[in-house]
Design a protein around this nucleic acid. Structure first.
Lengths: 203, 203, 203, 203
DNA sequence: ATCTAACCGAGACGGTACGTCGAGTCTTGAA
DNA sequence: TTCAAGACTCGACGTACCGTCTCGGTTAGAT
């Protein structure tokens, strides 16, 4: 977020130490006590920081959480990652979806991620920021892999790539959100097969 | 919900008028002030009811909201509805998905539904109740239509129907949750076509 | 004070235990930490009471303090006290003024009384309440003794009794407020003599 | 005040413009918002000055206010004033007390003066400074007039002049502090008469 | 004529307390 | 026993100021 507050504090004088302490505290706390019991007051206390320092730089609890996630991904930065591309689309997609399933199963990420999704649900501004800063880059990688498959003739040229990505990763995400069942590798594989081949019966 | 409280109040003496007033007030309020500002106190005041009457019969804010939704669907009850089945699966699915899109676009349902989803995200018990009482019956109707298509040879016999339903309705729901774009009829149609035919290019 | 709050809480349901705990805590705290550092939060914590319970019944810190004093004097109630009247006005007044000086010298009363005066200085409503409930009864006793002296021919009939009281007790009070010097019995005696005889030289 | 701070700032480099701006701002603000809502931040903002500049030169809010009053009286300085001395003590005292009453009635001085008195009540150091710098010189003038009356045989030689001053000006000041009634010329006159003649009845 | 140490405006910082809201519990009196 | 009403303790909210602490930028006075 790092949205400009109405009084426009002087970002040049901002304390980097406090910023980091706040993001770390927020991320840890949401994992420990859950999102519902996460409070600005608690974050400030854990971070050893005045509440005002949080209110000065973030408009809401959700914005802090969002920046905490951003800070995490920034740690992985500079790598300009790409999805695996062995030439076998189906195999590659299975590899990636299995990894996604594993990540979602990691209890370390479950509660914070769930918390972030809760906020996104309620806050359009946060949803937009999420789409742009966190989900966007990853989605671009996915689409790039699909584009590569289009060039290789595996996927049709007029495919809606956004929709394709949604159809591949959506079921996993939905099952996670709604706790609709276990996120197994077998499930990941079945999604890939079903999406690629379509629902329709073929003779 | 109507979960049993630990003191197990005597349901026989329960005031039906208060129950209805509470559910109505909850549904209206969540639409007016949003989920974040919805409070038990506010519901009680609007319903002209003591707070204790709410705490006596419901374990949480989310449970009240959930029952409010249940009450809505019960109003439509007794009809044993089914999805349209003209013999043309693709056309039927488009019809239904367009209707779903329209419903999600209805501002009257947007905020309450979003609120319910927020709670479900955080509360596994509520998620289970939602899956069983609200989403379940509708999902069964969808799967029934697909089963009919299997019988007609339009869909393969070994298709995972749950996954199929997710693949058809998931994108619409995800786009709505994340406010990822307009929910148009054209989008609904494209989902159906893509899901049925699969992503893979065919010669 | 016990001023009516705007929401007019139901005094019948008021917790007497909380009320007493609050007044006691306020009185003790002001003696321990001084008026400047006296806080509603501190009073609530010491009294084992929610802040809201204070805000519900009192409009300000000063009003609590005032009621704390009222409660003290009510403890001495039922006695219908009167000032000593031996027939010798000068001796009686010296007795009473010496007692007043002793009281002001008592460190137990100094800080709370000073605190109350601070509030009175700033708050006209509180000043009026003080004049009526705390200072008034005592002043009436003083005037009654002077009236008795008028009847005995010791004081002239057209004397302004309010002014007389002020002239007798004022110097003591002012010296105390301004810390203008020690409040000795000798000083008390000199006040009485000077006030009774007047400043003017007599042949 | 101008009390030495522990870091002993270099008074030679002190900005006179800032000092004046601070004192002016403090005096104006206390008149506008009242003493309770007077804040160092507010003064600094109004004066266009950094907070540190206030903390560097004054130890407390009260000290600033005190200096603001000092600055006012310094404006009237260099004249070596004296109270009127026509030879008629009673008339002269009535003149001066009427003037005092008028001053206390001036709303322009009421709030600031009340604020200063509030601080004096709580802060012994400030009380001493007040007694020495502000009240002292004026009291000396009053005592000088009384001494002149002693020489003229109007007042007895063994009169306690401090007590006499207190007895004359005290009632006015007390009535003002406690808002005990209107400060009229008639009241001023009655004080003088009562104090001079004493309370005692004379045949 | 520069150097340099202080003051200066500005304002971020860790804190304390404010006065308010709502949570969930408890008590009272009427039905 | 349920209900409306609402007082209670408690915890968090978001704000206002506290007094301390840099940060650059002036602005002397001593070199």
């Amino acid at each position: 977020m790092t949205t400009q507050s109405r009084k426009s504090p002087d970002a040049a004088r901002r304390s980097e130490a406090s910023r980091r302490a706040i993001l770390t505290a927020a991320f840890e706390l949401v994992g420990e006590v859950g999102y519902a019991k996460l409070s600005i007051e608690g974050i400030a206390a854990r971070a050893g920081v005045g509440k005002q320092t949080i209110y000065r730089w973030w408009p809401s609890k959700g914005a802090v959480l969002f920046d905490a996630f951003l800070a995490l991904t920034e740690g992985q930065d500079g790598r300009e990652a790409a999805l695996p591309d062995t030439g076998d689309l189906e195999a590659d997609l299975k590899t990636v979806l299995r990894a996604t399933a594993d990540e979602l199963n990691d209890p370390h990420y479950d509660e914070p991620m769930r918390a972030l999704n809760t906020e996104i649900l309620q806050d359009p501004a946060l949803a937009a920021a999420y789409a742009e800063k966190l989900d966007g880059p990853m989605k671009e990688l996915k689409k790039e892999r699909l584009r590569s498959a289009q060039r290789a003739g595996e996927l049709s040229d007029d495919l809606d790539l956004d929709l394709a990505v949604e159809m591949l990763w959506g079921p996993l995400r939905t099952r996670w959100l709604e706790r609709g069942g276990p996120l197994t590798h077998a499930y990941a594989d079945r999604i890939v097969e079903t999406a690629l081949n379509g629902l329709r019966h073929r003779a």
